[in-house]
Amino acid sequence: MIKTVKEAGLIQCDDCHKLLRLRSYKKRVKLSCPRCGSTLHQRIPNSLSHCWAYLITSVILFFPANLLPIMTFSEFGNGEPNTIMSGVVLLVEEGMLPLGLLVFVASILVPLLKIIGLLFLLLSIHGRWNVSRRRRMILYRIIEFVGRWSMLDIFVITILVALVNLGAIAQVIPGVGATAFGTVVILTMLAAHKFDSRLIWDNIND
């Protein structure tokens, strides 16, 4: 019989992973870890609500992030504001296919799949869907791992803005989309961070 920490009447510290006996654990009583001082809880409190909140906000911001220009690259006074997608198209047109592909994956595909993946995980827990728990766990790990790489475009803009500053000859100016895009990346990272993966494995005997 597989036993979890919760079923054994124990509690583990989320920060230092110390296992403790649970004597008088009540939902409203705040217990703290004797080793590291962190607040103890069997599952992250309101994990799903927090995750939903971050996720919905990032879905809303996903539109301005992709539709508004993230930067303007002007050479000798000519240059149009570029969105993320038009930046990718530009890279491909200039013959830099692998690079365009990389930016496309990091900036468009990853955030989109992350949002869809987290939605799927949240719904699967709410609806008690009968999907392989191990596969959902792999999905969660991928989401957690790739999140940071979406910040790529923000860093590229930063470097270009600092480097290409030659007035009339060539200049790069950031666009409003950059703020929205950076916020989307931060929010999806927070959503994944708040998601308690142990919820995937709960109610395994149902």
Binding site: V5, Q12, D14
Partner: peptide, 14 residues
């Protein structure tokens, strides 16, 4: 006994 156990912090298995 608790000292001999370790908990998985991703799936809560003991």
């Amino acid at each position: 006994q608790i000292e001999e156990m370790v908990a998985c912090h991703e799936c809560d298995l003991l």
